[in-house]
Design a protein around this nucleic acid. Sequence first.
RNA 1: GGAGAAGUGGCUGAGUGGCCGAAAGCGCUUCUUUGCUAAAGAAGUGAACCUCAAAAGGGUUCCGCGGGUUCGAAUCCCGCCUUCUCCGCCA
Length: 430
Amino acid sequence: MLSTGPMIDIKLLREQPDYVRSAIARKKFACEIDTVLDLDGRRRASITDAENARARQKAANQEMAALAKGSPEFLEKVAEMKAIATEAKALEAAAKEADERFHEAFLGIPNLPDPSVPDGKGEADNEVASTWGDAEAAYPHALPHFEISWFESRIDFGRGVKAAGAGFPFYVGEMARMVRALVNFFLEEARANGYEEMCPPIVVNAESATATGQLPDKEGQMYVDENEGLYLIPTAEVPVTNFYRDEILEGESLPVYRCAYTPCFRREAGSWGAHVRGLNRLHQFDKVELVKWTHPETSMEELEKLRTDVEGILQKLDLPYRVLRMCAGDIGFPHAKQYDLEVFAAGQKRWLEVSSCSNFTDFQARRAGIRFRGADGKPAAVHTLNGSGLAVPRVLAALLENNLQADGRVKVPDCLIPWMGQSHIGEATS
RNA sequence: GGAGAAGUGGCUGAGUGGCCGAAAGCGCUUCUUUGCUAAAGAAGUGAACCUCAAAAGGGUUCCGCGGGUUCGAAUCCCGCCUUCUCCGCCA
C-alpha cells in the first residue's frame, strides 16, 4: 500500500511508549509520540471497520454470482448491494486517510540512539574516543591552506563564483590531479577492505531521499530539480543504500560491502560564516562513501570495523586525527550511533571533520523496505551502515597545511605518489 | 522528441466482467523410491496490513502506478511510469 514503511518499529512504540519517549528525548529532535499513538489507534480502528464492510460486500457478491442475471432476485440484490457498496467505499476512504495521517506523523520520529551513545546536548558534549598521530607535533611551516601564496591559482574560487557561485571552486592543473589521486587512493583502499565499487546516479527521487532519511528532515539541504522531482545527492549513501530498496536479500549474502565515489552537493543553507573559508565547506565536493548491509546482530561490530577501515586510510596519509563518539544530542535523525573522524589541520589549528561512520540499525531499512530472509524464513529488516572513506576537500586542506615545507611547496604523501607521479606540488617561494 | 507494442507470482506464460491470489510449466523446499549422481513420485512454495496475549486460525489488500465505471475489475475507461521496436537527436 505504501512504498515506504515506518522508521522505527511501531510495535515497540505501542508496547513501550515510555522507553521510546525517553530514548528520543536524548536526541535533539522533538516529536509527538502521543499524537502518533493516537493516530495509530484511529488508523487501526478505521481499517478494521473498512475491512469488515468489505468482507460483507464480498460475501454478498458471492451470492449474486449464483443468481441468474436479470432475474427479479438478481435485480433486488443489486439494489440492496448499492447501499453496501456505498458504505464500504466511504469506510475505505476514511481508512486510507487515517493511514496516511498516521504515516506522515510516524515519519517524523527519529531513530532511537543506541544505549552506548553518550548523553549530551550538542557538539560540546561529544567524547573523544581516541586520537592518532601527534597533533602537537611541530609543523613549523604550516599555514592555513587558503593563505598559501599559490592556493588561489590552483583552486580558483573566484572563477568558480563566475561559473556557478560561491562554494563551487575550480581545481586546476596539478590540484585537479590531486583530487583524482585522492579519489583513486580512497577507492583502492576501499577495495582492499572488501568493498565492491559502484558508480551510482548522482540524482535521486523523493522516495530514495525519504528512505535514507534526508526527507523530510533535511529538505532544505539538498539541491532540487523541481521539474523532474530529482534531488542532487548530498552523499553517495542515498543512491547506494537505495540499490536494494524494496528487496529481500538472502540471509547468506550478508554482510554486503559497497563503495562509491561521487560528487556531493549540499546547499548548507544558513551555515555560512566567517570561519568557513577555503576548502572547509563547499557546496560541491568529492567523496568516497562506504556502505554496508548487515545482519541486525552484527551491525555494531560492523560499525567498529567500518571505523577501523577509515582510520587505516588516515594513517596511510599520516594525518593526525581523533575519533569522536557522538553524543545523543548531536547524532543525526536516522542515526542510532555515530563516530566522527576529524583530522588536524595544523595551519588553521583546527580539527576538520572528514568522515562520519554511522549505524542506522533498521531505521533506513524499514523505510526503504530492505529485508533479508532469516533462519525462520521470515523477512526482517537488515541494518544499514555507512561512512565516508573519505571526503576530499578537508583531507586536501589538512595535507596542504601540514605538509607545507620551508620552500613553499607541499610534500605529497608517499601513498599518493603512485597516483600523482610527483613528490611535491605548488611552487617554491624561496 | 515522433510513431507503434507491451507491462500478471522467483522465472516462462494462460487468463476480456463474478466460480482468479490467479491455469500450466520451470525453479525452490521437504519427503519417498533408488549403490552414488541423475531420474521418477508426493506434498509444499509470495508480500503487506488488521484481528489474536502469542502461536494457530480468521479477515482485507496487492496482476506496473494512480484515478474512474460497476452490486462486482487482472479483465472496461482515463492519466502517469517503465520497457521494447522503428524514426529523429546526441556523449
